[in-house]
Design a protein around this nucleic acid. Structure first.
Lengths: 237, 237
DNA sequence: ACCTGAACACCGTTCAAGT
DNA sequence: ACCTGAACACCGTTCAAGT
């Protein structure tokens, strides 16, 4: 069916799309996203960087490939339960998944090319919500919403954390400030003019992010539930 | 008070922290985040790249600087209204702000060093929520939740969008697929095994993201409201 | 059809040295 | 204290050329 099958299949291509993705994943897991270069992925395949550009337009497109092969598998969702337990399950499952796979949240973040795997996941979720009483539109909105929440949360969570007050003081000029004085002064000044920030600092300090995550999921689900009730009770508002 | 003020103040430093941030913002707005390099920012100041490392440890730290000076100004919040209108106003204001400033969502995303400006914003919001009846902890959670939602949403929204089905077909080998056959086949196959995806494709196609955004904000607020009601009515569950 | 060599135009960062 | 020159070790991408 393709345009060129007259004399092909001489040697098997040696670099398939799957091999490319696999090599990319290897590098990603070994060296992390920041250190993932075309040259390294090529080396993983025993090939030079230039060769990759025959199979892929861009580094971006390679990353799209990786993103899709890293999509969470929705088959882990239980087949029963109403929409809310299903949605919660997806949220937590996806959350754990993102934590288990290095740099995957960052890789996914803002990638606008859902591959087949992601589309499957979305399809399953949409079906459940629709069966639960949501309109097609609102089922779609709810799904996107929750997926977006999970991704955004993990993204925020996985950043190398700085101690909140530490902005200012760089390089050599940091020497004087680093050991005490200036940083403390800034903190005190902040505490005086910012009376309410305490809880937030505590929240980020002890960092029980699991609880915070679950709180958000439940708030989102509550909001969806009350919306569903409104629709059912009185039609249009 | 600082460690070295015996013979300083000979010439004024020529590169202050503010000048650095300003130069960074100029480059960011002119060339975008991907093209923001140390060399360009230095050039903007009439200086060589190496000089920047006296004032800043890292490119990362320069970006932290930019991120803080790009923090949304909470003084735009009306002083009256209950917590829910305040929260909604913040969400929409921040949303518009992120859209008005190039690459700011991407710059903020997952940055874990809230500068003084962001801390001020958070402080204001926390005060309002606490006054509205939330505990300190839950006020903090709600604030972080909403900020995270807005950022995640814009991040997702601003990515260069690919037509949903387009993954596969790269570079030279894309030639045959690009003009029709293969892509269409993939789409049809997808549509058959994914019966629920229609609404989502429509949603992303016509792209009324404003409505979707508002929907999410309202769901989040509803969820918070019902939580507040639960706490008020029966204490512990 | 598939891969290579060699180059182009960049990067972030360091460090001795200047003033 | 503050800035420069010059280098190091990388990048993504292109393109003629090989097989």
């Amino acid at each position: 069916m393709t345009s060129a099958d007259h004399s092909a299949a001489a040697r098997p291509p040696a670099i398939t799309r799957e091999a490319l993705a696999a090599a990319g994943l290897t590098v990603l897991r070994r060296d992390g996203l920041d250190a993932l270069s075309m040259r390294k992925v090529a080396a993983e395949l025993g090939v030079r960087a230039a060769s990759l550009y025959y199979h892929v337009q861009d580094k971006e497109q390679l990353l799209d490939l990786l993103a899709d092969s890293l999509t969470w598998d929705p088959r882990k969702l239980a087949a029963d339960g109403d929409w809310s337990v299903c949605l919660r399950e997806m949220a937590h499952g996806y959350y754990r998944y993102l934590h288990a796979n290095r740099d995957t949240a960052r890789l996914m973040a803002g990638r606008r090319t859902p591959g087949p795997n992601l589309m499957h996941l979305l399809d399953v979720m949409l079906g459940r919500l629709h069966a639960g009483g949501f309109s097609e539109d609102e089922a779609a909105w709810a799904t996107v919403l929750m997926a977006n929440y999970v991704q955004g949360f993990v993204l925020q969570e996985q950043q190398p954390k700085a101690p909140l007050g530490t902005l200012g003081a760089g390089a050599k000029s940091a020497k004087s400030a680093a050991s005490g004085t200036m940083a403390d002064d800034a903190c005190k000044a902040a505490a005086e003019s910012l009376p309410n920030i305490g809880a937030l600092m505590a929240l980020m300090a002890d960092g029980d992010t699991q609880k915070l995550f679950a709180f958000g999921v439940d708030r989102l689900i509550d909001g969806l539930r009350s919306r569903l009730a409104d629709n059912g009770d009185q039609g249009a508002g």
